[in-house]
Design a protein around this nucleic acid. Structure first.
Lengths: 249, 249
DNA sequence: CGAGTGATTGAGGATGCTCAAACCACGTGG
DNA sequence: CCACGTGGTTTGAGCATCCTCAATCACTCG
């Protein structure tokens, strides 16, 4: 877990961060930018499969995803796993741990990831000096809450087909928004799908097969290609949320 | 929905708020208190069964629960309902709507409730002038996220018995913490339990029956009595979270 | 080539669902 | 007082969904 991680002093200026150019993110003031630049303590690169954060650990850092993606999950003692959400570029990772002591979940990379590292001890300074940024952070936490609500609805009340349809539509939507998947392709295994939706691997496979038959998706080696995102959304009774400007960092 | 609600100008001073006396809540500074007092726009009283907030609506207000309890839920088009979490004294209600436009969930009262009403338009002023309070709000949002993660784990991966055990232990824990249930009694129907855990009413009933047999709980008219909270926690593989001081308002 | 990862398939059984009916405590109005 | 409706709980029956176990297959990598 340590060997896969690699912290280096930030070499990239926040002002020139390519993420900031994406129209989905709100524009920062000059003073905000320079503060964030100061707030940032370094870069972290992890490879696919690496565990970024571990449930139960105390971690002095807070991260923003710059590229790549991963997932947050929790485990039961006997190994049952529940994926709780996915993290993508622009997302803040580790806020819970910052505010409440030890981490209540782990996060693992689904692809190589690059993250910006912040010091959680300095978070309060941010609150004191930049209420706008503080507000942004609350906004992000609120958005996460919103996604979790929807996931609960899915896992609790949608049928298996609706579940898979929802998940794929949801993940693709977010991936596109954050600039991850331009071609409608998602690199995740059926085991991930199963662990997100609370169904078994076998049943997940058979459910996906039905969607493949109906030409909603195509499963390729180590990932899937979404052929009809709107159709999936309809099937699940879900609509992509507001794609208003959102803050990050 | 309007007739059940009753807004009155705040008559109760925040400094004398009985909630503040409970040792679970952090102590406020004098200036924080006076700001909150000014921030507070009135009181809201709703009766049992009333819908406080409606999914899809825009609401200019933000609330803190002063007494009583309720639940947040989402609906699918065909009426399937998922209860997403419970709200209890000290909880902030409606923050999502404040930050992200329209409400993504509804909330209904499980008992008569009293709430403090705030203007969401003034939230940013709070962020500018009281970073400590702003931090508190983020803290609350983060805590909510934490609970939702655990719920997802429950609904997705725990068995029916574990689910019921978890839910009862969890709700009782929170209720005690916030001063709701001193006698180990919870007034909720099996339908609520079912809709929280993503299982059918009939199956919920049969699962509860097993817990009753084993003397973990007793179901009384319109509610249940928890006989062995620790046992329930063990059964579910769940431990009550940190009961550190927490902020409110 | 052998090992490992992920997808796929079939079989049989447990879990959980729907439907339907009954029951009980309660409050209402004749 | 009793008949009735209501909301919540309880039960049984039969069936659909979903699970586990087990085996196979395709593909990559050392």
């Amino acid at each position: 877990m340590t060997k896969e991680q690699d912290i280096a002093r930030g070499s990239l200026s926040c002002a020139k961060c390519p993420l900031r150019k994406r129209e989905i993110f709100r524009v920062f003031e000059a003073d905000e930018l320079s503060f964030v630049e100061h707030f940032k303590k370094g870069d972290l690169a992890v490879r696919r499969g690496a565990t970024l954060l571990v449930e139960g650990a105390h971690n002095p850092h807070l991260y923003t995803v710059r590229s790549g993606w991963g997932f947050r999950y929790k485990l039961l003692e006997d190994g049952r796993r529940q994926i709780v959400n996915y993290v993508m570029p622009g997302d803040l990772v580790g806020l819970q741990g910052s505010l409440m002591g030890e981490m209540q979940h782990s996060v693992e990379a689904l692809s190589p990831m690059q993250l910006c590292v912040f010091e959680k001890a300095e978070l309060f300074t941010l609150y004191e000096r930049f209420p706008g940024l503080a507000y942004d952070i609350t906004w992000l936490a609120s958005r996460e809450e919103c996604m979790l609500d929807e996931h609960l609805l899915t896992v609790g009340r949608r049928t298996a087909v609706e579940k898979v349809a929802y998940l794929l539509a949801f993940v693709l939507d977010r991936a596109k928004e954050s600039g991850l998947s331009s071609n409608g392709t998602l690199e995740l295994t059926q085991q991930h799908v199963a662990d997100t939706l609370g169904i078994s691997l076998v049943h997940t496979n058979k459910t996906i097969a039905r969607l493949v038959d109906r030409k909603y998706v195509k499963w390729e080696d180590g990932g899937c290609r979404i052929l009809n995102p709107e159709g999936l959304g309809e099937l699940a009774g879900w609509m992509s949320g507001s794609s208003a400007k959102r803050p990050f960092l």
